[in-house]
Amino acid sequence: MKVFISSDIEGTAGITAWDEAKKGNPDYAEFREYMTDELVAACEGAKAAGATEVCVKDAHSTARNLILSKLPEYVRIVRGWSGHPDMMMFGIDHSYSAAVYIGYHNKAGTDTNPLAHTLTGTISKLLINGEVASEFTINALCAARYRVPSTFLAGDAGMCADAKILVSGISTVATSEGFGPATSSLSPSASVKAIRDGVEAALSRDLATCMPRMADSFELIIEFTTPVEAFRGSWYPGVEHIAPRTLRFVSDDFFDIQRAIRFIT
Rank of each mutant, 00 (worst) to 15 (best):
R213M: 07
I195W: 07
S168I: 05
P149S: 02
R147C: 04
A108F: 09
S97I: 05
I102M: 08
T16H: 09
H60W: 01
E135K: 00
P227K: 11
R205S: 10
I257N: 06
R32T: 05
A63I: 00
K47G: 12
I123Q: 13
A46C: 07
E38T: 12
G45P: 05
D86L: 15
F263K: 00
H117M: 12
S150K: 05
W81M: 07
G50W: 14
P188V: 15
F31N: 02
D19L: 06
E30C: 09
S134H: 09
G80A: 05
T16N: 02
Y96P: 09
Y28N: 03
Y101N: 00
A230E: 08
V148Y: 11
H117R: 13
A140M: 02
F263I: 00
S61R: 06
T183K: 07
P237C: 01
M87Q: 05
A49N: 10
L115H: 02
A98R: 03
Y236I: 11
A154S: 15
R145S: 03
I102R: 03
V250N: 02
F4L: 13
L247V: 06
T246W: 07
C142H: 00
A51W: 14
G158P: 13
T120S: 13
V173K: 06
W235H: 00
G130R: 14
E73M: 08
L247N: 05
V56N: 13
T265Y: 04
F263L: 00
T172I: 15
N129Q: 01
P227V: 09
L115S: 10
A163V: 10
R248L: 00
S184H: 14
L127Y: 02
W235C: 09
V75T: 12
K22L: 13
L207Y: 12
G91T: 01
T62I: 06
E33M: 07
D27A: 08
T151H: 03
E200W: 01
V75R: 02
A133T: 09
S171W: 07
A194H: 10
G155K: 11
N129F: 08
H241Y: 15
